[in-house]
């Protein structure tokens, strides 16, 4: 198996799929264009969306549609970033705590799930009452929405440490702190990154979601304004594509960081995982 050739053919396949998707979209758009009076509200042609990106027409006092999207993307991504880091920290600490104390794990685990099930509309007023500030509330809610994968994956990482290694640590009479520092924490890092990779795109969708809680700035606010026809509908379509792209990029960013943070681990992982990822084990 030559990984490079495989990767190329994978890329080709993805490309063909994207083409197929574009074709379906365009077919739909053509159909919509013939039957609706305002097709751009339902499904515009892709070239219209691209055109709107490069359009120089000002849609408010000073910005074009794309400038609005970019300016607000900055706000949303900043919040997503802070929320994500906060969520990752909370997730890691929770996992550590749960691993240290079985009781905590038993108590917390079901409730972590339940918290995820509370609609943010219910959560938001309470968080707002506590913080009295909408932007802090937004970051906190984004963190609440993203810590779960990190916590579960990291906990899984702690538990995946082979028993014999732990026994060895006990045999050499290592302290609890040492066990964590030398064995548990290093070996849970890949799992931690797995959690990060899941929650990074979530942080972005969560951040867009919490934008819609109130006016001000942010992609979500613009998305809802655009849907409410307070500005050109193409802002909405641009945000749809931008959020998808940024979401995917955020995932890859985590991979890159993982690579930088633990290069040797990555190298080993690739060797182990690569064949399995593509086909059955060689």
């Amino acid at each position: 198996m030559e990984p490079n050739r495989k990767q190329d053919s994978n890329r080709l396949a993805t490309f063909v799929w994207v083409l197929a998707l574009i074709l379906i979209w365009e077919l739909g758009a053509t159909l919509v264009a013939q039957t609706k009076r305002t097709p751009e509200n339902v499904l515009p042609h892709l070239y219209q969306i691209v055109e709107s990106v490069f359009s120089t027409k000002l849609v408010n006092g000073s910005q074009t549609a794309f400038q609005i999207v970019l300016a607000n993307a900055g706000i949303t991504l900043a919040r997503a970033g802070i929320g994500f880091m906060l969520g990752a920290a909370i997730g890691f600490l929770l996992a550590l705590l749960m691993n240290l104390m079985k009781t905590v794990e038993k108590i917390a685990f079901p409730y972590l799930m339940i918290i995820q099930m509370i609609p943010i509309l219910g959560m938001a007023p309470i968080v707002l009452a506590v913080t009295k500030d909408i932007d802090k509330s937004r970051v906190i809610i984004a963190a609440i929405l993203t810590f779960y994968p990190v916590a579960t994956n990291t906990l899984a990482g702690f538990k995946a440490v082979p028993g014999e290694k732990l026994e060895l640590m006990h045999v050499i009479a290592a302290s609890k702190f040492e066990i964590y520092r030398k064995l548990l924490i290093p070996s849970c890092i890949p799992y931690f990154f797995t959690g990060l990779k899941v929650s990074a795109p979530m942080a972005i969708t969560a951040s867009i979601l919490v934008d819609t809680l109130q006016g001000g700035g942010g992609l979500g606010t613009m998305l809802s304004q655009s849907l409410k026809h307070a500005m050109t509908i193409y802002v909405f379509w641009q945000i749809v594509f931008l959020s998808a792209i940024v979401g995917i990029l955020s995932y890859h960013l985590m991979s890159v960081i993982e690579k930088l943070a633990a290069p040797h681990r990555w190298a080993r992982k690739v060797k182990l995982d690569e064949p399995a990822q593509l086909d059955e084990p060689a």
Binding site: A124, P125, L128, I134, L213, Q214, G215, G216, T221, Q225
Partner: peptide
């Protein structure tokens, strides 16, 4: 001036002191 239109209604925003 804080724009509205989100799901935190103006009544909630005022009541919560925000």
């Amino acid at each position: 001036i804080v724009p509205g239109g989100g799901d935190i209604s103006e009544t909630t925003a005022v009541y919560s002191g925000q």
